[in-house]
Design a protein around this nucleic acid. Structure first.
Lengths: 166, 166
DNA sequence: CATTGTTTTCAAATAAAATTGAAAACATTG
DNA sequence: CAATGTTTTCAATTTTATTTGAAAACAATG
């Protein structure tokens, strides 16, 4: 297979997977493009490569920087801004965990904690409390585990994987 | 807090979280409603409780059954069909892992394996192969780990959590 | 401080996804 | 097998999310 075909397939698959995980397809494609590019790219290059508008590129590059997955690089003597993606996969995954945890898991935990104070005086409230308590414990455990994961280094992560499949 | 308020908050939060994970909000709300209901519900009850159309209820109930999160119950002497959700959280999570792995991770692995055969003859293809190889290894490891998780029982899962945060 | 190159913004347009509702299909019953 | 209760389907509609593109803002340069 040649690089061009490989790149296309990869960018397409990365974008498709993203939509299944609630992430904008184009944002993921910009990310994929930068991931596999050996050098930083300008907004114009991304525009041309993915055939999308300047505004779209700008918005998605900013979003990717918010997620900590892409960084800006300024080249001496040039006015254009260059962008490159974090390439180390463990750092990428860690960054995604940090952001999704903060944006999604933590607000959910807050709601679960609030909602755990329902008084129990009928079958309806009994079932409700049981399920909420179950999900709540589960989520708090997941939260702790993710905190540990975030602090861990790449090797430790690999070790956990190995330990789990053993 | 009273049950009504608790239920509403929970259903809303569950639906919101779902959209952030690429799952239809209504599907998640139907799931939430059945999760916290002490008894199986008919399509009509779901319709009334969530104030959505019959067609919508039908489609989402079928989708939830596809995911293995909801089951049908037939009551003797009644023509209506009743639906109830799997309540055990570990089973719910396992079911979601099984389905998402099959629908998303495995196709992605297939693409990564295909695309790993790019010949390496320029900086572009070198960078491409490095990134793909990295993601590929990572994903295969994740896949193995998930297989182990799926086979594991609830206690084993708890133990892993505990082991990881220790 | 005007010119030029570049980035950012955001209202409007477009595209994608979800929902409705009425008709059709199906199933049970007498 | 007609009447009735129930589920399923799907074209049309509505809602939501994404994208565009042109104007405004910004920044560097002479």
């Amino acid at each position: 297979m040649d690089v061009r075909e490989g790149k296309e397939k990869f960018i397409e698959a990365w974008g498709k997977m993203a939509t299944e995980w609630g992430i904008n397809r184009t944002m993921a494609q910009v990310h994929a493009l930068l991931l596999i590019s050996p050098d930083p790219l300008t907004a114009d290059q991304v525009m041309a490569d993915l055939d999308i508008s300047r505004g779209n590129v700008n918005m998605n590059l900013r979003a990717l920087m918010d997620w900590g997955l892409v960084h800006k690089q300024l080249k001496a003597g040039e006015r254009k801004e260059y962008f490159f993606a974090e390439k180390d996969m463990w750092t990428v995954v860690r960054q995604i965990i940090i952001q999704r945890k903060k944006r999604e898991l933590e607000p959910m935990l807050k709601v679960l904690d609030e909602v755990a104070s329902v008084e129990e005086n009928c079958p309806e409230s009994k079932q409700f409390n049981e399920v909420v308590s179950d999900i709540r414990m589960f989520s708090h455990k997941a939260n702790q585990t993710l905190d540990t994961l975030i602090k861990a280094d790449s090797n430790w992560f690999t070790n956990i994987f190995l330990r789990m499949v053993r």
